[in-house]
């Protein structure tokens, strides 16, 4: 498997650390309530199809990356710097 780091280019999967769903970007407010925090921390979809998750270019530039990929075909559809994605949602 190969992923394209927006800063370093296309690299082998072994250079990356996998965290999980990109929902991790959407941290609720402290007073958002139990359900919102439960969703954020524990509840995950398990889609057969397109998913977005977070990887870190750990053995490269340390960038956290939002990877959009298809769990069925293994296609990598897009990659973007997590910091850019986060800033854009504000």
């Amino acid at each position: 498997m190969r992923l394209t780091c927006p800063l370093c280019g296309e690299r082998d999967r072994r250079e990356f650390y996998y965290k999980g769903d990109a929902i991790a970007l959407n941290r609720p407010a402290p007073d958002a309530g139990t359900d919102a925090w439960d969703d954020y921390l524990y509840l995950r979809d398990n889609p057969a199809g397109v998913t977005k998750d977070l990887w870190q270019h750990e053995l490269g530039c340390s960038a956290w990356i939002v990877v959009e990929r298809n769990t069925v075909t293994h296609e990598v559809l897009s990659t973007a710097l997590a910091s850019d994605v986060k800033k854009a949602t504000k």
Partner: peptide, 14 residues
């Protein structure tokens, strides 16, 4: 180290 990078880039990039 990974955690600090995560918090900075993914939660408080500003």
């Amino acid at each position: 180290m990974k955690h600090l990078e995560f918090v900075h880039q993914c939660l408080v990039p500003d």
